[in-house]
Simulated scan of single mutants.
Amino acid sequence: MREFSVSEKNESERLNKYLSHLLPNASMGFIYKMLRKKNITLNGKKASGNELLKPGDEVRLFFSDETYEKFSKKKADVGGNADIKVLYEDDDIIAVHKPAGLLSQSDKKGGDCVNARILAYLSANGKMPDDFTPSIANRLDRNTSGIVLAGKTYKGSRFLSDAIQSRDVVKTYYCIADGWFERKGFYRCYHHINSDKTVSISDIKHEGDKEAVTEFFPEETS
């Protein structure tokens, strides 16, 4: 039997999400099956998985050592390239520099990306939590360099998500332009989702399109 005490960093996280971090190699179907059979309990009682956790809650896994090892993920299991420039880090969040040419998250082919490097960095430095899988909160295009934020804990991930959605995080982009800009201006376009799920950008608005407005101004000329 394994027992875990919920910390403040996981406050208000749903039990099923918490369990998916404890058992990253288990399907959600397996987790719900274990909940139904009371092989996983919350505060000694049967749980549905939809409960919102509170600090001090006790989660018990009535698994054999072999089963637990099969579905859990040890810190030592996270390897790979840990070469990432850390700009800021505390107990809950981390900000890193993404160089141009590196994906923020891996594509269908897998491979190197900022998210994987953050996990490798945390693992190599003994900072990988047992009850949460850190993940980036914002993405930049492959050929764009800049700051990528990631939550190291559920608390940090929720904080970043709320800050981005409420637009408390201000995004500023710099680019080198071929031409002459004498004054600031605006560029307005529309994002359209095609029938094949790809996205196209147009100056003409169609039904259901989302508007995107970019303000630009010259920072320096030469």
Rank of each mutant, 00 (worst) to 15 (best):
H97G: 07
A124G: 09
T214W: 04
S145C: 10
E66I: 12
K9T: 10
P24N: 08
S7E: 07
S5L: 14
K85E: 08
S157V: 03
S123W: 00
L87F: 02
T221K: 14
A26Q: 08
I93K: 03
L160T: 08
V86H: 03
R139E: 10
R14V: 00
G146W: 05
V170M: 10
A116F: 00
T41W: 06
V86N: 09
C189D: 09
F217D: 11
F181A: 14
V148D: 01
K210A: 08
D83V: 14
S157R: 01
E11N: 11
N25K: 13
G29R: 11
V170C: 10
G185R: 13
N25V: 09
G179D: 06
D196K: 09
D57V: 02
F71Q: 08
L61F: 14
F186C: 04
F132V: 06
L35I: 06
A82G: 08
G101D: 09
S200T: 15
D57H: 05
V148E: 05
V170Y: 09
E89P: 06
N115V: 00
L42M: 07
L53D: 00
M28K: 15
I164M: 07
N10V: 00
D141M: 03
N39D: 12
F132A: 08
Y18Q: 03
G56D: 03
D168G: 15
F63R: 03
L15D: 00
Y121E: 02
H192M: 06
S106M: 08
T221H: 13
F62H: 07
K152C: 01
G49L: 02
R158M: 09
L22P: 04
N115K: 10
K74Q: 11
K152Q: 04
T221S: 12
G156Y: 01
F159N: 03
R14E: 01
M34G: 04
I31S: 02
S12R: 04
N115Y: 01
R183P: 00
D57A: 07
V6L: 04
D178L: 11
I204Q: 13
G56S: 09
G146I: 04
D141F: 02
K155C: 08
L149M: 12
L53I: 00
A47I: 00
S48T: 10
K73L: 13
E69D: 14
D162M: 11
S157E: 07
Y32C: 01
M128S: 03
L61V: 06
L102V: 08
D107Y: 11
L52W: 04
D130T: 05
S145W: 08
T221R: 13
S123P: 03
S20D: 04
V114S: 05
C175N: 07
